[in-house]
Simulated assay, not measured.
Amino acid sequence: MSQGSARERLLDAAARRFYEDGVHATGIDTITSEAGVAKKSLYNNFSSKEELVRAYINARHEEWLDLHRQRSAKASTAADRVVAVFDAYIDHADDAHSKGFRGCGLLNAAAEFPAGHPARSSVRAHKEQVEKILAENLESMTTEAEALELAEHFSFLLEGAVARSGLEGTPARLEHARAIASRMLAAL
């Protein structure tokens, strides 16, 4: 059994199962069994599976922000900070996944819910924050209007690469997207 509080073990188990098997395909019994806790522990920490899903999405968001912060801290230029966004996604793709890389865990989760569902709104907020990070770094390299447009382009490039990398189970498309982004930045 893993170390940590029941809440941490439940979130870790949910993260693995939701990413590998899907949110709707993963039952509470599977999560509690993998976490090594009683079902009562789950309900002592989360009022429902929906609250656990919300906590999972928030944890994935924070996980990506941490990856980005680590990469961005090593960047010496605005262009390097833009590329750090791609590097954070590559880092996520390089993480050990027992069933292989399946793409963005947040988008995978969002795809299981209908339009307007709070889970989809949380994922959208994450993607908007990623685009905002891109725009903020691009603003020092070009006009505000061009930075916003480029941020959207980089967002599309990034999301397409994540989707293809997830389908192929390898970060190769993300690495190619990073190279394209680097060439675009050099042309500014």
Rank of each mutant, 00 (worst) to 15 (best):
Y43W: 11
Y43F: 15
Y43R: 09
N44H: 13
N45V: 11
N45K: 10
N45G: 08
F46H: 09
S48A: 09
E50N: 13
E51A: 15
L52G: 04
R54L: 07
Y56S: 00
N58A: 13
N58Q: 15
N58W: 07
A59M: 08
R60S: 02
R60L: 06
R60H: 03
E63K: 05
W64L: 11
W64T: 03
L65S: 01
L67G: 10
H68S: 05
H68W: 13
R69N: 15
Q70S: 13
R71T: 04
R71Y: 05
S72P: 05
A73R: 09
K74Y: 11
A78H: 15
D80C: 10
R81M: 13
R81H: 13
V82S: 04
V83E: 15
V85P: 03
F86I: 10
Y89G: 02
Y89L: 06
Y89F: 12
I90S: 05
I90A: 07
I90K: 06
D95E: 07
A96P: 08
H97W: 10
S98G: 06
S98M: 08
S98I: 12
K99Q: 13
K99Y: 12
G100F: 01
G103T: 02
G103H: 01
G103L: 02
L107D: 00
N108Y: 03
A109P: 00
A111G: 15
A111D: 08
F113W: 11
P114H: 09
P114L: 09
A115M: 06
G116V: 07
G116P: 03
H117C: 07
R120Q: 15
S121N: 06
A125P: 01
A125Y: 02
A125G: 04
H126D: 14
H126C: 11
K127R: 02
E128Q: 12
Q129L: 14
Q129C: 08
V130I: 15
K132R: 07
I133H: 10
E136Q: 10
L138C: 01
L138D: 00
E139Q: 14
M141Q: 03
M141P: 00
T142G: 04
T142F: 02
T143N: 03
E144I: 09
E146R: 02
L150T: 03
E152R: 07
E152Q: 07
S155Y: 02
F156Q: 08
F156M: 10
L157S: 04
L157D: 03
L157Y: 05
E159V: 03
E159L: 06
E159P: 00
V162Y: 03
A163E: 08
R164A: 13
S165L: 12
L167I: 13
G169I: 11
G169K: 09
T170L: 11
T170R: 12
P171H: 01
A172S: 14
A172I: 11
